[in-house]
Amino acid sequence: MGNYITRRLFQMVLVLILLSFVCYGLMSLMPGDPLDIMISSNPKITSEDIVRLKAVYGLDQPMYMRYWAWLTDILSGDFGYSRTYKVPTTTILVPRLFNTFVLTMTALILSLMISIPIGIISALKKGSKFDYFTNLLAFAGISIPSFFLAIILIIIFAVWLEWFPAGGTESVGEASLTGMAYAKDRIHYLVLPVVSLMVLQIGTFVRYTRSAMMEVLGQDYIRTARAKGIKQNKIVYLHALKNALIPLITVISISFSFIFSGAIITETIFAYQGVGRLVYDSIMGNDYNVAMIAFIISIAMVLIMNLVADILYAVVDPRISYK
């Protein structure tokens, strides 16, 4: 097991280094260039000045040299400055990471709490009207474009009913909020983004719970339990559910990357100050330092979550052993 974790961690670091290299290369291929803004805002600049500036910033060096310089800086703890916000990258990144963590985890936990019971019921009532509608809604949830759902939510709940704000993270200008009032304010802003992220997950989770539950219910040991006269409720919730939830861990581990992808769209639409929106904004705004770090850290988070889920899988199911 320890061996397995070490190997996975090593592999993860390798993926991250390769990915950061590719990402660094792609950033240099994006429209615009760190010097472009300086040059265009200064009419008196001469071509000698440009060459000198390029040398000062190391932009005359080949890509792999610049990448190496960047990587050594990162490893020594220097994350650089944001061009847009004029503050150290970490100052922006840390609260953003926290916001995204709150958003995605709330959505994940709530959607599991809703979809597992629904999946179980529709597996037990296979072929019923409830099962039929659940199936239809699950497909709708999987197929709906996240931004479309978000826009519909805004139209209904923010424009028509005015129950929730159309966007933002917290009320602006009311810094005095503390404790419960602060939490309440945050929750008020969280509702719509969380709902729009949840709908995307619920469909997948319901379908997996249902099929896992149905498979387990068809097994011999359930029949044995029935033959021994154990009550239906006890069979379902004590004997079947435990084993049906195991494959769900894999689904959750896969869904981390989906949730993060969804979070980019959701955060962009709801103007939620999370790391997904930061990735998008910094790429569009040529804020290279922030874009690189936000991108790498968010992917590292997804990969770590995957690893945790895989380890949990082995803990829950003793038949699985990683070599």
């Binding site: 993926v15 990915l19 291929l29 994006m30 993060f260 992808s261 980019i264 990735v279 790429i283 997804v302």
Partner: peptide, 21 residues
């Protein structure tokens, strides 16, 4: 490795590339 990556941020980075370069 590719499967474990979150798709959208990766797509955004690739899509933002300027073909001229």
């Amino acid at each position: 490795s590719l499967l474990s990556l979150p798709l959208l941020p990766v797509l955004i980075i690739f899509a933002a590339v300027d073909l001229k370069k």
